[in-house]
Design a binder for these strands. Sequence first.
DNA 1: GCAATAGTGTCTTTGAGACAATATTGC
DNA 2: GCAATATTGTCTCAAAGACACTATTGC
Lengths: 234, 234
Amino acid sequence: MPSSKIIAPYLHTIDAIVCRFNRERSRLEVLLNIRDKEPFKSLPALPGIVVNGDSMDDDLDSALNRLFTSRKVGLKPLYYEQVGTVGSKNRDPRGWSSSTFYLVIVDSNCSPLEGSYFEDFHKCVNSIVNLPFDHNDLCKKVNERLVSKSLYSNLPMMFLGKEVTFTDILDITSIVLGRDISKGSMGGRFKKMIDDGYLIDTNKVISKKGRPGHQLKINRTPSKIYLFDKSFNR
Amino acid sequence: MPSSKIIAPYLHTIDAIVCRFNRERSRLEVLLNIRDKEPFKSLPALPGIVVNGDSMDDDLDSALNRLFTSRKVGLKPLYYEQVGTVGSKNRDPRGWSSSTFYLVIVDSNCSPLEGSYFEDFHKCVNSIVNLPFDHNDLCKKVNERLVSKSLYSNLPMMFLGKEVTFTDILDITSIVLGRDISKGSMGGRFKKMIDDGYLIDTNKVISKKGRPGHQLKINRTPSKIYLFDKSFNR
DNA sequence: GCAATAGTGTCTTTGAGACAATATTGC
DNA sequence: GCAATATTGTCTCAAAGACACTATTGC
């Protein structure tokens, strides 16, 4: 099937669901971009790029990197993973298109570039904030992955910097899962990560309010995601 | 970015890793297809179709269905799920291409069409049987998904028909995970599925060798994949 | 009887989860 | 002292996993 037979207009894009943890407001946020081209010009949407356009990337990962370094994102990811690919004749008014979309996590303190801002992630997931294309759907699918994987891994910790406290981990896990996690449950996982050298207790203390907590360091070098063998309940 | 700007040759394919459980040989098998076109003409490869070609599908799912009903597969899936999408300039000699690939499970007793046959799946996963393109890689990624998901779900049961015995479940789970599963461990999950109405004990007995076992019926209507809250050990 | 397979029971260990009790800060 | 937060400990329960023991068939 030589490429000359490809006559129908077709777009393959990469879309990034770039999330961060807003500590002040205790919520997850997703990066939106004011579109400067049609369709949906001047509306906020998920940042994305075309894969089968003029730019010749080596592979999907380098295309993703092109998106990260572009002015649509311009942020360095702490973590990312591919979530899925959707494609249909209707999702883009320009014609048949596919989107391979990624969960991307960036630092809490990052600053969005001109033309971008962070929106309440769960409002996008639940279509309280309406996004063009099927971008609400993509947020929903990414959130499903985020929640299901957070039940049995330390994925929520990817939202935190290198220096964390036990409470930080408890907070972000509760926010991601949308329910309270008891200190006891989290404590077991916590201990395991310390034992396996994934978390290091610096024995320094950090004071916010009340009794100060231990300062912990995430040792990201040995592995990426830490998998537990038992899930939190749903 | 109008579609007229798309000048580079580009292929987006869907590839199916169609697996079945061969009871006689106690192994998983994957469907291979003798290619009747270049590149790699007359070599066996994973069945796949082009999405951005002449055929206009409604969406990826209907494209997948077109593949299922084509003479490359021609089998009715018991279960399928999207595993991922890869793309690079090198994976297909024709040029830049992406592949969205699926884990597909079919019945043990199905017969492959003319030009197709079933090969030992783990030989493809471990590159003991060499496949064109990056098809060995795709098998490997699918197997990783299959194994990791089988640790905490009843995914292995998708390889079985509606009428099963406890031993069938034990066997297919062991084969998928590549290690022995104790009757005790499996028994707990088994009981839970009975309690939740997912498995029904018909109280009929079926005799193979030795003491006959109870005939069980899988009640597929309520849900698809049954998730357990604790994993088998790795 | 014996081999083969099915099914049950007992014990250990791990980890979630609830909850109580104590410790250390700022005010 | 007191409010707020951190940390530790105790108990229960669910499920994996190891292993022993019994049950029911065909030969």
